[in-house]
Amino acid sequence: MPGRTEFIQTIGKALGRGAGNAGDADIFTTTASLEQEALLARIKTRSAAERKQLRGVIEQVAGPLHIDFHPEDNLDDIAGAIGRLILEKDPEWGTEKSVVRWDHPLLSRLHLESLAELDGVTLHTTDCVSGGQGAKVSAAAQRSAIRENVEASFIGITSADYLAAATATLVMRSRPGHARSASLVPSIHIVVIEEEKLLANLEELYTLLKWDPEEQAQGLTNCLSLISGPSKTGDIELVMVHGAHGPRELHLFIVKGEAP
């Protein structure tokens, strides 16, 4: 790599590297502190009642963050509510109503395609595996089809890996079937997430990402997004306007946990 060695040497020189100054051996943290272990344990053993409390927190913070929090908490009601949103809302860029969703088990269980009222609406899935009619389609062709569908859709429906309650922060990772653009390009973003995925705050999220063995194995992937509300800007006279480039609206549904 041109320049790297020299570049790093220049920094080393500026830092006075040499005998007795090799840098801090403990610069990377490799073992969790007792507090972090305790926090991990607390996250893993969180009760249904505590999760319900977190739901309450989100309900409170959603308003100021301009997030539309919906009270429906079971899949049937959520599907109905999403159906109504699709019918009520108007496309921003055209007249056709297309909706795109992740290829995600929770979203499949909504069975949106079976909602009778969505007859004239095209439902797309960002499905990387199946491609076209049984024929093997190239990855590039699949990508461009997904891109076309996302661009054409006025609503994007996704789930999320986690939801940190204190800041209503959704955590999404790039995965097969989980298009990054589905939460970004359509004018309206709808998120459906299970109550089990609720965390108290960002500290919990980062503690999980850093120290939980499963999370460590998975890593952040090449793109992890934290989303706390719809797109907004205050660049003209600090007047807050929602829908700068990303979604103008963010609708949030939390699926109630299974009864123990």
Binding site: S174, H178, R180, N222, C223, S231
Partner: peptide, 17 residues
């Protein structure tokens, strides 16, 4: 509102990026 962690190009089996 949006914090993104970007570590490289899209993986081959990912839909976009």
């Amino acid at each position: 509102g949006y914090v993104s962690y970007i570590g490289g190009p899209a993986a081959e089996n990912h839909c976009d990026g």
